[in-house]
Every structure is written in structure tokens, then in C-alpha cells.
Design a protein around this nucleic acid. Structure first.
Lengths: 341, 341
DNA sequence: AGTGGTCGCTAAACTGATTTAGCAGAGCAT
DNA sequence: ATGCTCTGCTAAATCAGTTTAGCGACCACT
């Protein structure tokens, strides 16, 4: 890979100057007293030789690599990982940095390995990402340098970037109230584990808090709350069937994520009910299926790309200590309507 | 990041030997005549100091970085990207390598930038990945070192890894024939652009060829073939409605991907038809929605994780010149049944 | 006694950049 | 003539490894 590239010495020789001079000119050092003509000659020589600095040599000296480590627990399982990475990639490129990606798979041995691998490569900083918004403790080994938590917070008060799930909860509730839904709103996706253990999820509790707050302010209480062991379609399906078997049919359903909503749609379809004429549905995440459903599903989008970007910005440009809350925009779609008269 | 680490010189000093000796011992060099005792002392010293070599210094000399570049056109748009990366990540870790990820976004400027960034970092090889299986031409600049194409082939005959779409086509057709479907099989997702332009897709043509071949051998011809402008749910929905409006109802549907099948399910649901009792459905990709649908969708899985893994293996361990075809396993699920009597 | 070979190890060069310390010459005042 | 400052530039050290060339001691053989 890239043999016989011109070196700084080649450039200097061609410009008839010393390596020192060439280095200073190319790095745009202030306060050097090299003549305009010397600058000229160095630039010309570098251009002619197609000079590109050897970054290994540079970082040996400077201890900077223009490389950021992106360490995550699991990159593959959720389709959102790509967006997180893409946002980070974009922001990194803008700052002339590059991303080194590793995965711990939630395994301590792999984590150890991943940390060593990135430390050995002298990365300039680490983005420690979680695929589900949660609290975690970062391995002590990486605390030697800059770290930003992505989609996670830590007890250590490290800089972090998380979605504004509480705000999303408020938006969702407000959207229903606005349409006139009041006393027949049901919630699908309560989950004690997710709500009570911040190491499992921070989203569940925050979303619930947002919903409650807005409903309380309007003096509305939920018609029903369904607990689900997981936030998967089958659980949404079961919950929805449960709701439909009760005497009072809800006018609107809030699902804690789009996959639950997908399951709810299936149950509604089987029951011969129509969204949104019979029942409105609104949800969280903006998974691609939300737009594919019929009718398309209103939801609040996890701003993963934004978050990835913010993490890099925080890491390289520095920033506030308290968690950066990235807003979750409401996607108004066809699954919303006023309650049936 | 990682200041004050022990250096090789520290290890050597502590072991009472030269840097040369320490280096040779730690690298397990054969044919050196260092005593067993010297080995011992070096290992002990390295262990005690928690020595880890500085990879920048090493690669300055050796021109090896134990780093692989993963350059792709678009990492985020498909949910499969994560699997590709994960497979590559796993295989890389097993070989003590790490992945540098960049994205070209199909933009020439970004591509140029990405190539330079990875070349500057002296990566040991490049995996050039496409998110849709297709033919592409790789930028000349990276041809200086090892390159493997992932999910793509090139006219230059570079080593490449692609899914066996033709085999998948055969599996899909065979699965239907096996159940007794013969003269009422319809196909959703024909698309001239995808079939005719290898730079857009290689999958469409290969899948079609596989299907045709197996049906031909059984002397069966397709009842209908629906063209779709894109392989998205809405197009599958429209195609399915079209099919249902015709006099002869199909007994089974082959969809060119799961998203089309998702759309087809929606149309079937609306028409009051049941899968698989009224109509069987089978498809390609094994998108997560396939398992979430009711009934779960039989499909052939894109082996993205395997592919990512193979790419790294090919890059580092070397391998055949012809494209490595990774089999697409058939996932038998609930959407299949014998034709209604 | 001289020659050659093996053993166990090391000094020093080398990779390609950055950075520190400082030199030569010009101009000017004393 | 001396000292001083300023300008424009460079030699050499440095980063932390790998690699080449070779040294001294010891033994065997002629």
C-alpha cells in the first residue's frame, strides 16, 4: 500500500531547503521567518512530488493520529447503528479525522481487547457508544484521554450525547391531546426492567415521564397501560389483542416503540379495525418500517445521525459537561386522526 | 491518550539486555540464539511494566499497521451494513487487526478524500464495499496494495465476495415446487434497470436466473411477472393488488425482496386473504421484518456477516481470484403451504 | 599456532516526520 | 572595532520501534 511516496526530505531537497524549513512551511507555522520565496518553493516542490506526509512518522513525534476510536457494545443488531456511525463519520471527515471501529459485544474479554487495540494505535479520543440508550461505566483504561459517551450516560459525569426521550414523550402525548383524544388513550410497552434499571434503558423511563407530565397537565389519565416483556412486534400484537378484548375500546394508542406499533397494527388488522379512523396510533423511534406501514405510522425519530455528529464535535471541539440532549422530531403521519365521534 | 507507557528501551533495561534482544524475544523471532534465560527475563520485564509496543513507531519501520480500511459507498442506508461490518470486525479481531471505516456516499470528492485518508494511514489493505450487490470500478489509487471487493465485483478481476443470489433463486423456486405449486406461481419485482445494469444490481438478474432455471427444469412457467420501479413495500402492495384483480389467482408469490413481500402482505390482508392458506409467499434478503410479519415470512438470507468475514480472510490470508460466492440459506417460515385444493 | 565455526548478544543505522537550539550575515549604534 | 538585534535559515535531537552488521568468547580441527 502506497510504496515509494515522496518524503519530506525529498520535498526539501527539491526546494533547495532544509527539512526543517519544509516542515514549517507545510504546517503553516506562524512566527517563522522564512521568506515568501521559500514558501513558494516548498509548496511547488510538494505539489510536484505529490507529497503526502507519513502519518505514522508524524504521530510518533506528535502523539496525535487524527483518528477517533468508535467503541460500541453492539454495532450490528439494531439498524440504527449505521446512522450513529454515519453521523460520526461525517463530522470526523469535516475535521480531517478518521474513525477506527471496534465492538465489545458486551463481552469483557472483547472489551479489553478493543480498548488495548485502540490505545495501542494512540487514538486522539474515544467515542463509547451504546446501542440502547442506557447508563454504563466505562473501562478505566480509556480515561487517560478524551472520551465521549454516545447514546449513554455514565456515573462519572463524562460528556455524553443522548436523545431527548422525555421531550419525545411530551410531543407524543401533546399530538394526541391536540387531536382531541382524552379519556381513551392507552399505552403499550410498560416494562419494569427497562424503566427501573438505567443500565438496561434510560429511554423507557424518560418517555413515560414525558407522556405522564403532558397528560397530567391536561388533567388526563391513561385508559390502560400494557406491560410487555420485550419491545418486539409479537408483544405489541398480544398487548393490542388484550386491549381489544376489554369493554372500553381506546381511541388512541401510544406504543413505546415502532416495533410494538407494528405488532399492534397486526392485531388491529385482524380485528377488522382501521387506523386511524377507529384508532389512532403513535410511537417512538422512526424505524424504517414506520414509513412502510399502511397507514404510515406517526412517531418521534431517534436522531441517531445528529447524535453521532454531536459526539465527534464534543470530543474534538470540547463542550459542556451535562449530557447533550438531542431533540427527537415528531413525524406526523397517517396514523393520527381525531377520535371517532 | 495513554501517556507514560513503558517503551521497549524500558523493558530492555529492566531485563538487563539490549533493545535488539528485547525486540527479538517479544516478536518471537526464529533463529535468534538468545538463551532461554534471556527470553525469560524479557517476558518478565515486559509483563511487570505492562509493556505494549507503540504501533506508530513499529509501522514507521515495518510499513505494517495491522489496520484494514473498510471503504463503502453508503454505510447507513441499509440495515445490512451493520452485519457486513460486524463480520469483518470479528475476522479482523481474530487476526489482530482493526478496521478503519470511511464512506464515499457515492461522491467522487468524498471518495478521493477517503482514499487519501486511508492511504496516509498506511493501511495494510482495503475492503471496498457496496451496499447493494453490484459491479463497480475501484479508484486506481488503492490498487497499490491488497484490495478485496465486498458485495461487489469489478471488471479488473479483483478478489471479491458476493452472495449466491442465483443459488437463492433456485432454493426459492425449489421450495415452492416441493410443496406442489406449479402453474400458479407469480413473481413480484421484475425491474429492467436492476436486471440489465450490473452497476446498479447484480442480484436481480442472478435471482431471476436461478428461479427460471429451476422452474424450467420442472417444466413450469410463471403465471405472472410484475414489474416494480423500486423494491419497496408500496410497490409490492401495488403489484399484489394488480395480481389479485386478475381472473386467475396465484397459489404462490415470489417477491424479489422482503420489503416487496411486506407490501404484498398488506394487499393480501386488505383483500381478506390468508397467508399461507390462500397464498404462499417467499422472498429474498431475510430483513428483520421477515421474522416479524404475521405469519413469519419464508425467505433466503443475505449472509452479510459471513461475507464481511470472508472479505477479511481473503484480504489477509489470500485466496482465489474468482468471486467467492457465499450461500444464501433458506429460512423456512410460516408463509409456505401446499396450494389450496 | 592458526583457522573456522558457533553461540549469545549488542551497537548503530534506519523509518519520516517535528522541534529545539543556534548559526551566519546584515544593519545599525556606539 | 565592538556589541547588539534582527533576519533567514539549518543541524541535530527526538519519537519508539526493527533490522543489519558484527563483536568477543569459546570450541574443534588441522
Amino acid at each position: 500500500m502506497g510504496r515509494n511516496r515522496a518524503t519530506l526530505a525529498d520535498v526539501a531537497r527539491r526546494a533547495g531547503l532544509s527539512k526543517t524549513a519544509a516542515s514549517m512551511v507545510l504546517n503553516g507555522r506562524e512566527g517563522t521567518r522564512l521568506s515568501a520565496e521559500a514558501h513558494q518553493r516548498v509548496f511547488a516542490a510538494a505539489e510536484e512530488l505529490g507529497y503526502r506526509p507519513n502519518l505514522a512518522a508524524r504521530s510518533l513525534r506528535t502523539r496525535k493520529t487524527a483518528t477517533i476510536a468508535f467503541v460500541s457494545d453492539i454495532v450490528a443488531t439494531t439498524r440504527f447503528a449505521g446512522d450513529l456511525i454515519r453521523g460520526a463519520l461525517d463530522a470526523a471527515r469535516e475535521r480531517d479525522h478518521v474513525l477506527l471501529i471496534t465492538e465489545t459485544q458486551g463481552d469483557a474479554t472483547f472489551e479489553q481487547y478493543a480498548i488495548e487495540a485502540v490505545l495501542d494505535r494512540q487514538v486522539d479520543g474515544v467515542i463509547y457508544a451504546a446501542m440502547a440508550t442506557r447508563r454504563l461505566t466505562v473501562p478505566a483504561a480509556i480515561l487517560g484521554g478524551p472520551v465521549v459517551l454516545l447514546n449513554a450516560t455514565s456515573p462519572d459525569g463524562l460528556p455524553s450525547v443522548v436523545p431527548d426521550d422525555e421531550g419525545a414523550g411530551r410531543s407524543v402525548a401533546a399530538a394526541l391531546l391536540e387531536l382531541g383524544h382524552r379519556d381513551a388513550i392507552a399505552l403499550i410497552g410498560r416494562n419494569r426492567l427497562k424503566e427501573d434499571d438505567p443500565e438496561v434503558s434510560l429511554a423507557a423511563r424518560a418517555r413515560l415521564r414525558g407522556i405522564r407530565q403532558t397528560l397530567d397537565e391536561a388533567n388526563v389519565s391513561l385508559l390502560a397501560e400494557c406491560f410487555c416483556a420485550e419491545w418486539l412486534p409479537e408483544h405489541g400484537y398480544a398487548a393490542m389483542r388484550g386491549l381489544l378484548s376489554k369493554p372500553k375500546r381506546p381511541s388512541a394508542i401510544i406504543c413505546m416503540n415502532d416495533r410494538l406499533a407494528f405488532g399492534a397494527y397486526q392485531a388491529l388488522g385482524e380485528a377488522g379495525l382501521t387506523v386511524p379512523e377507529d384508532i389512532s396510533v403513535i410511537s417512538f423511534d422512526d424505524d424504517p418500517i414506520a414509513a412502510w406501514l399502511r397507514p404510515s405510522l406517526a412517531t418521534t425519530a431517534l436522531p441517531h445521525e445528529q447524535m453521532g455528529r454531536r459526539a465527534v464535535e464534543l470530543l474534538l471541539d470540547g463542550g459542556a459537561a451535562e449530557p447533550a440532549l438531542v431533540p427527537m422530531p415528531l413525524r406526523r403521519r397517517r396514523s393520527l386522526a381525531p377520535p371517532a365521534a
